[in-house]
Design a binder for these strands. Sequence first.
DNA 1: TCGTTTACGGCAATCGTTTTCCTAGACTTT
DNA 2: AAAGTCTAGGAAAACGATTGCCGTAAACGA
Lengths: 343, 343
Amino acid sequence: MAQQRARAVTQRGLAELAGVSVATVSRVLGSPPEQRHRWAAPETVQTILSLAESHGYTRNPHAASLRTSRSNLVGVMVPRLQDFVLATIYEGIEEAAMENGINTYVMNSLDDTALQRTRTQAMLERRVDGLIFGDAHLDDTFLDELREQGVPLVLTSRRRDGHVSVTCDDYVGGRLVAEHLLELGRTDVVVLAGLEFASTAYDRTRGLIDRLAEAGIDVPPRQMIYRGFDTAAGRQAMREILEAGTRPNAVFATNDFAAIGALGVLQDHGFSVPEDVALIGYNDTPLAESVGIPMTTIRSKMHLMGREALLTLLALLAGKEVQSQKLEPELIVRASSAARDIT
Amino acid sequence: MAQQRARAVTQRGLAELAGVSVATVSRVLGSPPEQRHRWAAPETVQTILSLAESHGYTRNPHAASLRTSRSNLVGVMVPRLQDFVLATIYEGIEEAAMENGINTYVMNSLDDTALQRTRTQAMLERRVDGLIFGDAHLDDTFLDELREQGVPLVLTSRRRDGHVSVTCDDYVGGRLVAEHLLELGRTDVVVLAGLEFASTAYDRTRGLIDRLAEAGIDVPPRQMIYRGFDTAAGRQAMREILEAGTRPNAVFATNDFAAIGALGVLQDHGFSVPEDVALIGYNDTPLAESVGIPMTTIRSKMHLMGREALLTLLALLAGKEVQSQKLEPELIVRASSAARDIT
DNA sequence: TCGTTTACGGCAATCGTTTTCCTAGACTTT
DNA sequence: AAAGTCTAGGAAAACGATTGCCGTAAACGA
């Protein structure tokens, strides 16, 4: 029979055992080690500390939060945790949070603006100290409203004008792809861009277009298609492109998963990669290297992005000045765009 | 300039406005709608409700938790959220939690027993009401210790004797694969089993072996290899098998991602799937359908599993009798094991 | 008529911490 | 010697919600 969990010892209990007041216990237990002596004699400190240790004392966070109205909780909103990219970013957030004694709530918004609102509300009701959004929309003002209300927030993965964010420098990423294509001489490119309202899609596409334009090449609008970031969306987009009769010699998907989806469709239609079509993804997920034909992609520092986002939020909560950060992307060339004979 | 968040109205505030005591406010706001009249006259109820509404009252969960020592929080420990399978299970947990006014903390244990312990400790310190573990180990007693201490917990994804769990019926899943192979006449099978200490790996493998044994076929130990569940592990395992000179006519990976890794290696070595080797995965992740050659796999109800795990924990917390559940798996046949000529 | 319910709701303790004053003595400083 | 300054700590008031225990009237039963 499982025994009842013993009622946890409180500061009051420790105070009685140590023969001091709870105030002293609270001060000793609550100060960083180097400041403890400011509140009690060395031996008192020792007594309290060892009593706490031996009785397995752990502070009741609800009581502390009630008193301080600081919860040490941050809310994280992502489009979907199933998405490897966001899961990785979240791992970075979690890791940094852990290191700083912070806990996190994650929720999926599925990029649905109604859900974004209600779930944010739910986190606010839980009294989070601040929020990290991984699902910012370029075309929705929800985040602006939230900031008007004074809710501390930081964006990651996607940026939005007027908000602090930690993202990959997606515009540069797009340019890197363009440069690679220029070197390959494969500039009749189709862009599987992702979702229109995501800055990632927008910036990556923009970067590519701009760089190609500088080389005098332009990408006709019908060769840019917005369908989503996942495998299914990639398949769908690629299929539509091919069915429309377009025959590019390169495909840039703004996400590795979309690229994998596209790869399957290309092969089904008898195109070989990279001989007929060079294929480039984005994010350098582990799968990029492992699918049938290793894929060229842009490596983005997802884990670090999460860490920095959390750290930025913490700085913001501490009242410091904070700035947006763009992490440097890196081109990883693999077989899917290897320079071979160009037909 | 962002204005300060207005100090939220409390029950006391509402009580003053309504001209009643906080006790009444608490009771009205805290009871389910059909019981509210037990505490106040209809018009009093109305006044309080509309005041709460118009002032945007939200209960302070810290205060409530402090008083009731019930946090409405549950901790969820997974090996890794990057893993699509666990991310999906977690989505199910989250969804059911949301519906029941519960919040969740997730953490990654990376299947490291030390991390499992410290992070569980961290959740307990946050005063979670109960825990869901998606990372149970067959060979570690940590969970038993935890139960001894009276911590309410439910397992999911992986089971462990003596604990309540909600899992896929992996043994049956393994048998389904075996039956499929028997029908195909492909019984010289290699099993990329995953991680030894995971019941998923163990049961799926066991199910396969047992069913084949019933047909008089046995799988030599050197054709079963434990390397992990992800793509990299799948590659590694497959490579080792082939380098050892083994030439199976079927490969069963206990996870789709491992199967995808294996697929790449098989192709690199000049084996074609399914002609030379039939390939079967597990879980029916979206990728299974989308990789170059659509993959035969076992569909497991991951989302539902998460939901049921949470519901089971809630029942447990409510003091009800709860039982383990095994969700029915389903064989999905696709091209990677399509019955064609057998060489 | 008197006793008993029922409806409606208040009092006040409590949950565990933090933090703002205080203080009593010991030491310095001038 | 008087006045400051530390040291080491205490008292008690919050923080916001819940809940066991009562109280008062009106309604009802016999």
